[in-house]
Every structure is written in C-alpha cells, then in structure tokens.
Amino acid sequence: MKLFTIALMLCIRQGISAQILKIMETTNNTAAVVTVINRYFKGIETGDTVLLGQTFHSDALLFGDINGVPYAKTRNEYLSGVANRVSPDKSGQPFEAEILSVEVINSIATAKLHVRMYAFNYYNFLTLHETEKGKWLIVNKTLTNVID
C-alpha cells in the first residue's frame, strides 16, 4: 500500500492522476471480461460454435502461427474449423485452459490465456471491446503453439 501511495503521489505531481483514477474505476468490468473468456473456453472444449460465436464480434480476426505456419482467419472461418473437428470433450481428450492475465481500461481489455488441447500448447492473446453497456466481445485473437 505504501508503494502505491508513493506512486500515486508521483503521478499526481506529474499531472497524470486522472489517467490512473480512470484505470482504477474500470476494474469492475474485469468480471464481465472473465465471463466472456470462460464462455470462450467452454465453446472450444465442447465444440459449441453457437456459444463460441457469441463471444466474438462479427468482424473479429484471428492471427498467429501454429508450429511456424502462419495462421490468419476471419471469425466465420474459425467457427467453421471448430464445427468440422471433434471437440476435446467428445474425443475424451484432456482440455486445460487458464487465464494468465486480464487488463481492462475503459471499454477495452486484453487477456493472455494458456490452452492445452490435443498435442497443442497454445498461448492466446485476446483483445476485447465493450460494444454496448456491459456487452463485451472478442475483437481480435492472436495465437501461437509453443512446443514443449
């Protein structure tokens, strides 16, 4: 607490206290963002493309690489791929997903996720936006598979 007070005093001195206070005011949105991420995880695990689709903005884009191969898809291309594979839940394969971090500032948020499914060790970075009061959606996903 002492360190926070010192940092706040330095920021006030430098004239950026309003920015810090605004960031602090947005932390109540973190729970809404985590709810979207948990629905995203459930959609991946079960292959529920309706649920999964509800977590993404209709114009969302996905980029990254899988084992060094570039990956670029629209939301609809991604959902089609999920629909045409056997979900971890139906295959009986383990599915592990965790939120590593979430940061919310006003109407935007970022999240770092770790997802293990099949032979993949994915790290995902999501960007979310509050499109309507309380309605958070994934607007961008980047991903990579890290070989153990």
Rank of each mutant, 00 (worst) to 15 (best):
I138S: 04
T144S: 08
H129P: 08
G134F: 04
E130F: 04
W136L: 03
E132C: 06
N121R: 12
K141W: 06
N124D: 15
G134T: 03
F120C: 01
A119K: 13
N121Q: 02
N124F: 15
L126P: 01
G134Y: 06
L137E: 15
L128D: 06
L143P: 13
T127I: 11
E132L: 11
K135T: 15
L137N: 10
F125E: 04
R116T: 04
I138G: 07
K135R: 15
H129G: 08
Y122A: 05
F120M: 02
V146Y: 12
N140H: 08
R116Y: 04
T144I: 11
N145W: 04
F120A: 01
L126Y: 06
V146E: 12
K135W: 09
T131D: 13
W136R: 12
W136T: 07
L128V: 00
T127Y: 05
Y118D: 01
H129R: 13
L143C: 06
K133M: 11
K135H: 14
Y123I: 07
I138E: 10
L137F: 13
L126C: 05
N140C: 09
A119H: 09
N121V: 00
N140D: 07
T142C: 14
V139L: 09
Y123K: 07
L128R: 00
K133F: 06
M117K: 13
L143F: 15
M117H: 11
L137I: 13
L137A: 10
H129F: 13
R116I: 09
T127L: 07
Y122H: 05
F120R: 01
L137K: 12
N140V: 04
M117I: 02
T144C: 11
L137S: 11
F120D: 00
N140Y: 08
F125K: 14
Y122S: 03
E132Q: 13
V139F: 09
Y122M: 10
Y122T: 04
T131Y: 12
G134N: 07
F120T: 00
L143E: 10
G134V: 04
T144N: 10
N124A: 12
H129L: 13
N140T: 10
W136N: 06
I138W: 01
T127G: 08
M117D: 01
G134L: 02
L128H: 03
L128F: 05
A119F: 04
F120P: 01
T131N: 14
T127C: 12
T127S: 11
V139S: 08
N121K: 03
N124Q: 13
F120H: 02
